[in-house]
Nucleic acid binder design. Sequence first.
RNA 1: GCCGGGGUGCCGGAACGGCCACGGGUGCGGCUGCAGACCGCAUUUAUGUGGGUUCAAAUCCCACCCCCGGCUCCA
Length: 463
Amino acid sequence: MQVRLSDTLSGRTIELDPSAQKDIRVYVCGVTVYDYSHVGHARTFIVFDVLRRVLMDRGFNVRYVQNFTDIDDKIIRRANEEGVSYREVAEKYIKEYLADSDALNIMRADLYPRATEHIGDMVEFIKGLLNSSHAYASSDGVYFSVKTFPEYGKLSKVKPEELIKGARVEVKEGKRDPLDFALWKFYDEGPTFESELGRGRPGWHIECSTMIRKNLGTTIDIHGGGEDLIFPHHENEIAQSESLTGKPLARIWMHVGLVKFGEEKMSKSLHNAVYIRDFLRQYGPNTLRVWALSTHYRAQVEFSERTISEAVEKWKAIEDALYSIRQQNGCCPSPSEVKEVLDAVEEANAALNDDLDTPRALQGLLRASRAVNRIWGSGSLGGEGASEIASGLERLAWLLGLRLPEIGQEEADEVERAVKKRNELRKERRFSEADRIRAELQARRIKLIDMGERTFWRKVEVI
RNA sequence: GCCGGGGUGCCGGAACGGCCACGGGUGCGGCUGCAGACCGCAUUUAUGUGGGUUCAAAUCCCACCCCCGGCUCCA
């Protein structure tokens, strides 16, 4: 099954065909670990998680690498503020990133390379650039010489002259040209690395170029990140890597639109960032995923009460459907009902192949869910056709990384007992006592559904 | 200024030449001891503005207006 993805560099849609090429190498720019991750980060990594799931499901062999920038001015500043080493700060926030990522049901990368583990490789990379005169050493560091790379600006579609005119490029003493950027910065103080280049620290862009080359190869299939990385980060990566190797760095460049908070971009410097963990305390992982996937990945999304409460309602419908297929309650859906569900699932799958059109896929899932809930509501989910419905829905939910909240055996037993007790009370028409039990369960996010003689219960994300 | 992405009903968001997508919210009604889930109806014949092409345009063409983002560390 073919998958199409749009490429920022060429502006075209590029097809991936597992019968032509099985292995896909993906590199996604990860976070700089100096603070907790926010909803904007979550969106990007959720999108790439879905991409990865789709590629795997369609028969590709995916190798997924995502870096941690664990040496950087912000990390050092944070360390100084807290009176600890930069390594401790980095370690802490790597752990926290992974905790958030796991909570969001984002699959672990095959590899999480760290900048500090590749200092030697970066130095070698920079030496290669010095040897080919794409780089030069000056008083305060080693710089990449942008004018030695005539294609500079091809990704961000910005002409070098225009950038200089914008006059927002950093002017530094050691630069020959204002557009040149640091590969290695000389420092005597703070955390530094001794190298043939001199004592100092690596520039930011070089780590990705180096870690891609080292861990995935010269030309990878997909390189991605947030759209705020197009310039200068990815532009500079291209300049460095392609100057060194003479080959394209990536076949497809994917960029995820930014999250807006009200009218502005969500960002730590604007002090409007919502941490993933704070969101999860109030809502849950599926709500965040549904929210993130409700908008096409290339468009910007607004983080607002309104868009979130919509996601809550959407997830509720999906959640109920996922429970319904497990809590079968009769027999049997009609052929046209089965078809209705499977058609919606198929539409969703087609949408995922079409440049990862998750809003359309979600629509399909919602339509399938509604149909399932209707079948279940009429007490005929089970028997013939039910397993097809179940596997179609489960697979789609997996592709979007949506899953039911977990519940321990002990809690389940407890709930069972409470439900039984409540039904005894109901039989005796002692409704206020029965309702009190229901309210208690609700406080624990247990939802009850009475259907004739039977009572079904479901552990839900948001009640 | 330059580059990129947008403007569709109360809201979110599809369709990209032809049949009121879909979802959410709200209101009313059905089912229910109540609730949930489900069902029915309403809000809904919406497409930034002005021209043009066409039997037919959110959809194609031209001009204009407005919004967001990038151009500085940023997912």
